[in-house]
Write a protein that binds this DNA or RNA. Structure first.
Lengths: 225, 225
DNA sequence: GAGTTGTCGAGAGCACTGCTCTCGTTTCTC
DNA sequence: GAGAAACGAGAGCAGTGCTCTCGACAACTC
């Protein structure tokens, strides 16, 4: 219902986002220009502001979309593992889905995990979307706990309060040790992907993904230990 | 020697870099403006181009300086450990020096390890400077090898060739296993710092540095295992 | 010492950016 | 059908990186 105006608005909003993503992939997020999008769209630059009040708002919309897509990619990767009790395999699948998405959408990855824009404070909607890809790891740990697995890593005392809060936020019954193992794995994987995508492995590791595989294997052992 | 012209040039070059760093600390690297620097310097914008042919060249100079400073900070931190055979302590000191520098110079950290500028290809001078802070970790592993320590981590086959090349580049006699352990630790630490500085731990880990400490401890155990 | 050469800062200007404001036109709502 | 709201166009502002020209001065050559 509700007329052609609303439909037209939804269509051009989607078109703006599509063109923005296209432009971002071609020239990087920092080069994203509202005026260029307007030109591609065949309208005058000021008209864009009817749809996004500022460049930051456009970026926010793109960030939310990208978090969702990353989340879906990681979920799909992890879900493809048949033997659900093979927790190491599930971890590997999730981690490799993460890296693959990052490589295939490097400008979006940079948008999510690169330098934050100085004045830009992430709105609440983005942090909700941002949790999606991490939830996959939590679900693996939760299933391990349900299967009777007990993690025995030392938990730094300072982390206790945070882990308690996290557990109640996530509504899961994962031990402090399991959460610690998970966060270590998370940090390591993110570090490896960032190093690779942001060019810090040039002349260090030429074999693409070799460092990443090593990191994933190390933490596969840790997670299932 | 050689006259006032050369001295004046060196002075204003240094002043430009100083103002650039100041401005970067205040508003982030992306907001760095040649015109603003010129204004602060009391000269017209086009005059800046006598000293740096483009904004990218200024950024390159800043990047090299920052890599050097980071390297020095990590070296100093690691050197402060008295018992040179306490390799875990040396690792902790180096890692914490890295994080401390990152926090104290967050805009410079973002410049080094954040989103690379799309068109920007790091010149050879930067990659030389970039190795400095990593060399500290290598030196710890080298000393461990000299002290008879043998690392037993599994080494991914695909990494072999890269590790061979690295070893000869570095001119050190560290085993493949030791290098693998080191690179894993490197990736994890970089990941933890990036997550913290780029705001991805908001509402996840509020205790500053708690995740970092956990990561450092885990790899301290790995390195000395 | 005189003359040439090269460096420097100033100024104007180009193409671009995000963003604001106004002004008709079109669509929706009552 | 009348009033309100949404929309696109256009002009304009302040800012950016960068280029070009021009006059002043230091540095080197003869």
């Amino acid at each position: 219902m509700t007329g052609m105006r609303e439909r037209a608005r939804a269509a051009t909003t989607a078109e703006i986002l599509r063109l923005a993503r296209e432009q971002m992939a071609a020239e990087g997020a920092s080069a994203l220009s509202l005026r260029a999008i307007a030109r591609d769209l065949g309208m005058v630059s000021s008209a864009i502001y009817r749809y996004f009040p500022s460049r930051d708002d456009l970026l926010t919309a793109l960030i939310i979309e990208s978090y969702e897509r990353l989340g879906i990619a990681v979920e799909d990767g992890e879900r493809s593992v048949r033997r659900r009790t093979d927790f190491a395999a599930r971890w590997r699948a999730a981690a490799h889905a993460l890296r693959t998405w990052a490589i295939d959408h490097s400008s979006e990855w940079a948008l999510l995990f690169g330098t934050p824009v100085p004045g830009y404070a992430a709105p609440a909607d983005t942090i909700a979307a941002a949790t999606r890809y991490t939830t996959v790891l939590i679900s693996i740990l939760t299933d391990m706990a349900a299967a009777g697995h007990v993690h025995r890593t030392a938990v730094p005392k300072v982390l206790r309060a945070d882990l308690d809060r996290l557990r109640s936020q996530l509504g899961t019954e994962v031990s402090d040790a399991a959460l610690t193992v998970g966060m270590n794995a998370w940090a390591a994987v993110m570090g490896a992907v960032n190093l690779e995508l942001f060019g810090h492995l040039h002349n260090v590791v030429n074999q693409p993904g070799a460092l990443f595989d090593a990191v994933v294997e190390q933490h596969a052992a840790f997670i299932t230990a």
